[in-house]
Design a protein around this nucleic acid. Structure first.
Length: 279
DNA sequence: CGCCAGGCTTCTA
DNA sequence: TAGAAGCATGGC
């Protein structure tokens, strides 16, 4: 079990002795779209209905601002997956030399436990799109339809979005994806897609279940499952992963990697996308 | 300007 | 049933 210290302080919660965690690598690796560093290197974002700023003070030291001990334990510890021993996971993955290289490249990357509905929507938006523009569309989505909260706007509820029309979504400039967002909102708000059931479904069932929604195919379903439901069986294959697999694993993913394929995918995605010359 | 982007739906043979 | 075209928009 990974152990770290968290103590309340004047500004929030001070975290120390936390290994295998980098804000840059975790928040800028393409799994989430609402976190931004300011000019002082303080990351700020809104997730799980709350605004948060975080400063990385050193290799294993962090300051979580705008929060208290109770909220930290209830929301941020699970969100940032701080109770999982990534050292052990990386050791297991390093049985494969390519994975050893990929984990060494971003040793502080963790898989966030994001909200399922938000992950579903943001990865619907992600299709045939680039990360910079995805961020902009997601931000406008929150400004237009999310509840104002301290620090900005919450991610919109499916109910609120389901009330909107296609024309109402025009300000997002999300292109052909707008109709997919509405279909997702209407099916979730109407109960046809019950996201609270997803954790009880097998991986294959969950994939098919989410693909009822227009604009949700295998890749978007996999991203929603991995990033919104922490399903490690998911292995999203986008253009970058196709390049990476062809180049790094022409024979397929090694057996040693299979138990952690979800996390492995994210190490590989980040490694490939930020080192295109290696492919 | 042209190619591409964390793909999917629809059309075509 | 496989493969290609079309899709909105903007980053680079």
């Amino acid at each position: 079990m990974a152990e770290y210290k968290a103590i309340p302080c004047r500004d929030g919660v001070k975290v120390s002795d936390l290994k295998d965690f980098s804000l840059l690598e975790t928040l800028d690796c393409g799994q989430c779209f609402r976190w931004m560093p300011d000019e002082n290197g303080i990351w700020q974002g809104i997730a799980m209905g709350h605004y948060l700023r975080i400063r990385q003070l050193g290799e294993t030291d962090f300051l979580f601002m705008d929060t208290n001990m109770e909220q930290f334990k209830q929301i941020w510890e699970p969100y940032f997956d701080l109770n999982v021993d990534y050292g052990a996971i990386k050791t297991a993955l390093a049985a494969d030399p390519v994975m050893a290289q990929a984990t060494r490249y971003a040793p502080g990357l963790r898989i966030l436990r994001q909200d399922g509905w938000e992950a579903l929507c943001t990865f619907i938006i992600s299709q045939n799109n680039n990360i910079k523009r995805i961020r902009g569309i997601v931000e406008r989505l929150c400004q237009c339809f999310g509840e104002p909260i301290e620090g900005g706007y919450d991610f919109p509820t499916p109910q609120r979005l389901a009330e909107a029309s296609l024309e109402d979504l025009a300000p997002l400039r999300s292109g052909f994806r707008a109709k997919y967002l509405l279909d997702a909102a209407r099916k979730v708000a109407g109960g046809q897609v019950d996201l609270s059931r997803v954790p009880q479904l097998s991986y294959e069932e969950a994939q098919n279940y989410l693909q009822q929604i227009k604009g949700v195919g295998p890749k978007v379903a996999d991203c929603a499952l991995l990033f919104g439901f922490y399903r490690m069986e998911a292995f999203p294959m986008d253009v970058w992963m196709k390049r990476a697999m062809k180049s790094l694993y022409p024979e397929g993913l090694p057996e040693a990697v299979q138990p952690y394929r979800g996390i492995a995918q994210q190490y590989l995605f980040h490694y490939a996308r930020t080192n295109p010359q290696l492919l």
